[in-house]
Design a protein around this nucleic acid. Structure first.
Lengths: 251, 251
DNA sequence: CAACTAGCTGTCAGTTCTGACAGGGGGCCT
DNA sequence: AGGCCCCCTGTCAGAACTGACAGCTAGTTG
C-alpha cells in the first residue's frame, strides 16, 4: 500500500486542470475496485438557518455518477439531506454506507433519497469527510457494485489509503483550482473593515471601538456600514455572522 | 504496514481513560521511531480577536515533552504563536518541521520559540493537523532526535499512517473523554433561544422574528436577553458570534 | 492631471436594541 | 403542594444602530 499510496499522492502534485484531477480520481477508484466516485469540495456557508445550500458558492465537483442521477439530485436539492452528506458534515471519520440497510435516525426524506439512489445504481459505498480550516469542506464518495462481503473486503483493504488520498486530493484541488468554480466576484473587506468587524464580533459598541482605534465613532459606523453594504446585509450582527462564515474575518 | 495500522486503529476502540490513550500514543510513536510526542485537542474559540487562547476551554493534552518545557511553554503563552500550531490551524495536510532551518514568513516571536525548543530537545518533527466539524480541532506533533536524513526516511515511511492514526486518535479521544477537560459548567441554550439566535444571525430584527415565529416582539427580546445573559455578553452581535464559536448555534 | 481607492469626519431623523420594572400559564419533579 | 424551568407578554427610558445628507486627506495608477 505504502508505495502505491505515496506514488498517488506524489502524482497529485503534477495535476493541473479539472480534467487531470477527475481522471486521476477515476483511475485511483478503479484501481481499488470501486465502480463510481463523486467528489465535492468548497467552502461551507455558516449561516444555514433556512439554508437551501450547504456551500457558499457552487463547489468543485467531479463524479462518474450517471448524469440523470446528478440532474435529478441537483433538481431536488438532495445534497443537503443526503445521508452521506449530512453525516460527512458532522463526522470526522470515513464510513461505509448501505442504502438498503438504512441507518438509525434516518428521516423520511433521507430514506426516499436512498431508495432512488439504489435505482440509480448507488447501493453501497464508502465516504470520506474532509474538514479544513475556515469552513473548508470536501466529500469523497466511492461506490461499489459488488456484493456486501466482497465490498467489505475492499473497504477494509483500502479505507486508510482512501482516507489519506481524499485529504490530499481535496487540498490539491482547492489550492490548484481556485478560480475554478469561479464566478465569485469575490468580495473583499479592507483591513480597517475587518478589524472593526472583529471588535464588533466580541461585543464592542461603535463608541468603544472608536476609543480602541483612536478614531471617531462616526468613522467606525462608516466602516461598519461599508462592510454591511459589501456583504449585502442590513445589520451588524448579520455582517459579523456572514463574514465569519465566509472566512473573511480571518481566524 | 496496513495490518499494523488497522491493528492500531482497532485498538483505539478499547481505550477508555486518558492514561490508556497516552500510553497508546507513546507506544505508537516509539514503534515508528519517534522520540517524543504531543497531542492537544478540543474546540476552537472563534472569537479570537485579541485572543489569548486558541481553544474555548483547556484542550485535552497528552505529551512526553520535558515538563520544564511544557511549563515554560504554557507560562509564556507560546501555543498561539508556535509555528507548528499556527500552521496546523490553517493547513489541512501534515508537514515536517525543522527548528533550525526556520521557515518562510516566520515572525520574530516564532523564531524565538523555535530556538528555545531546540534547547528543550525539540529539533525536528512532524505534525498532523486535525480539523473536524464545528470548530473541532486537534494537533499531533511527533519529535525525532535522529539526524535529518534518517528523520526524513522515517517520516516518508510513516507519514500516511501517522495521518490516519492521528485523525482516528483525535476522534476517539474527543468522543470518549468528553467531560475530561471538564469543569465546563457547560452552558446550554434552550430550543427557543438558539432558534432565535439563528434568525438573528441572518439579520432578522426582533420584530421580523416575532412575525416568523408568531410570537410578540417582546418575547423575542426576552429570549435574546436570556441568551445574552447565559453567554455573558451585552449585545446580540456578540451573542451570535460567541454561540457560533461555541458550536451552540449548530453549524 | 484625473480618477480611483482607503481612510477619516460631521449632522440628523428614524429605527432597533438593551435592561429594568412588571406579570401569567403549563409541565415536571419531590 | 411548592419549587423549578420554559415559554410567553406588557411598558418604558436610555443607549445603540442605520442610512441618508455632506465633505476632507493621502496615496496609487493610467
Amino acid at each position: 500500500m505504502d508505495a502505491i499510496l505515496s506514488h498517488l499522492v506524489e502524482r497529485l502534485n503534477h495535476l493541473r486542470t479539472q480534467e487531470d484531477f477527475e481522471a486521476f480520481l477515476r483511475g485511483a477508484a478503479e484501481d481499488m475496485g470501486f465502480d463510481m466516485f463523486a467528489y465535492a469540495g468548497g467552502r461551507l456557508a455558516a449561516d444555514r438557518v433556512a439554508a437551501r445550500t450547504v456551500f457558499q458558492r457552487p463547489p468543485i465537483t467531479m463524479s462518474s455518477f450517471p448524469s440523470e442521477w446528478l440532474t435529478h439530485y441537483a433538481d431536488e436539492g438532495y445534497f443537503k439531506d443526503d445521508y452521506v452528506v449530512v453525516q460527512s458534515l458532522r463526522a470526522i471519520l470515513p464510513e461505509q454506507w448501505h442504502a438498503e440497510r438504512g441507518v438509525r435516525e434516518i428521516r423520511p426524506r433521507q430514506a426516499q433519497i436512498m431508495r432512488e439512489a439504489i435505482d440509480a445504481g448507488l447501493r453501497r459505498g464508502f465516504f470520506v469527510p474532509i474538514h479544513g480550516p475556515a469552513n473548508d469542506f470536501g466529500l469523497l464518495n466511492v461506490i461499489c457494485h459488488e456484493a456486501e462481503t466482497e465490498f467489505s473486503k475492499i473497504v477494509e483493504r483500502y479505507k486508510h489509503e482512501l482516507h489519506v488520498l481524499a485529504v490530499h486530493f481535496h487540498d490539491a484541488v482547492q489550492k490548484r483550482l481556485p478560480a475554478s468554480a469561479g464566478r465569485g466576484a469575490r468580495l473583499q473587506l479592507t483591513e480597517r473593515e475587518s478589524e472593526i468587524l472583529r471588535w464588533t464580533a466580541v461585543g464592542k459598541t461603535s463608541w468603544e471601538i472608536s476609543e480602541i482605534l483612536h478614531i471617531t465613532e462616526r468613522t467606525v459606523n462608516f466602516h461598519v456600514a461599508n462592510s454591511m453594504r459589501k456583504l449585502g446585509v442590513y445589520s451588524r450582527t448579520h455582517a459579523v455572522a456572514k463574514s465569519i462564515s465566509l472566512g473573511l474575518t480571518q481566524l
